[in-house]
Amino acid sequence: MSEEISEVIAEGKFDNPFYHAASQGTVTPFGRGYEALDSRTSILNEIMLELKNPNIFMIGVHGMGGVGKTTLVKELAWKAENDGSFSSVVMATITDSPDVKKIQGQIVDALDMRFNKEMIEGRAIQLRKRITKEKSILVILDDIWGRLELEEVGIPCGDDHKGCKLVVISEDLNVLNREMGTQKELT
C-alpha cells in the first residue's frame, strides 16, 4: 500500500496546489480568540442594552449545545468589565448537577475574597453581604440545567440589590423563563 501511495505522489503534479484562503473573520483585540460574527455581535449588543435597563435584572441566553453561548458570555464579561458598565463581573459554571459550594467558590474567587464559614448557609450570608457592597455587579451563570436557588447560593437580585444583574445561560428555554424567572430571553 505504501508503494502505491509513493507512486501516486510521484505521478501527481503539485506545482500549483489548490487551497482555500483562511476566512476573513474579525477578531477582537488582545488575542482572546473571540470571533466577532455579525450574529454574535448583535446578540452581544442586545444583552448590553438590556443590562442597562433598570427594570431588568435577569436575562437568559439559550441555544443548542455547541453554538457558542459560553464564548459569547465570556466576551460579554470582558466587555462589561472593560467598558466600565460594572464594577465587578463574575462567572460560575453550574452543570446538570449543581454543587452550591463549588458555585459559591467560583464567585468568591472571582471577587478575590475568602470564606470564614464552612456551611452553605453561612457562606451564602457572607457572599450576599459582599455582593451588596458592589455598586454594580454582573453575575453570569453558565450551563444551567434546572432551577438554582439564588438565595441558597448567596446571590441577591431584583429588589434585594438593584445593582446586581444576572445573565443565565441554558440550552433549555423553559429552564430560563419558568425555572429561573428570566425577564428577557435571547437566542
Rank of each mutant, 00 (worst) to 15 (best):
M113N: 10
E151K: 07
M180N: 03
N116E: 14
E151R: 06
P17K: 04
D143H: 06
L166I: 14
L127G: 14
L44H: 05
N177H: 07
L150W: 01
F18Y: 14
I155T: 01
G68V: 14
M119Y: 04
Y19V: 03
Q183H: 09
G158L: 10
E50M: 09
D160T: 06
E149D: 15
G181L: 00
N82Q: 09
V108E: 11
Q24G: 00
W78V: 13
L49H: 12
K135L: 05
M48D: 10
V153D: 13
R128Q: 13
T70R: 00
N55W: 00
E46Y: 06
K52W: 00
V175I: 12
H20C: 00
M1W: 00
T93C: 09
K117W: 06
V90F: 04
L127S: 14
G146D: 13
G63Q: 03
M58L: 09
E46I: 04
T132N: 15
G181W: 00
F18L: 15
N174T: 04
R123K: 15
K165H: 07
I43M: 02
G66A: 07
A110N: 15
E81P: 01
E118M: 04
V73E: 07
N174H: 09
A110E: 15
V89H: 05
K13I: 10
K69G: 08
N177D: 07
L111K: 14
L141T: 00
D112C: 07
V73G: 11
N174I: 02
S6C: 06
L76I: 10
K162F: 01
N82V: 01
V90C: 14
N45H: 08
T132H: 15
D15N: 10
E11L: 08
M180I: 04
L186I: 05
L150Y: 02
I59G: 11
L173F: 12
K117R: 12
S170C: 03
A36E: 12
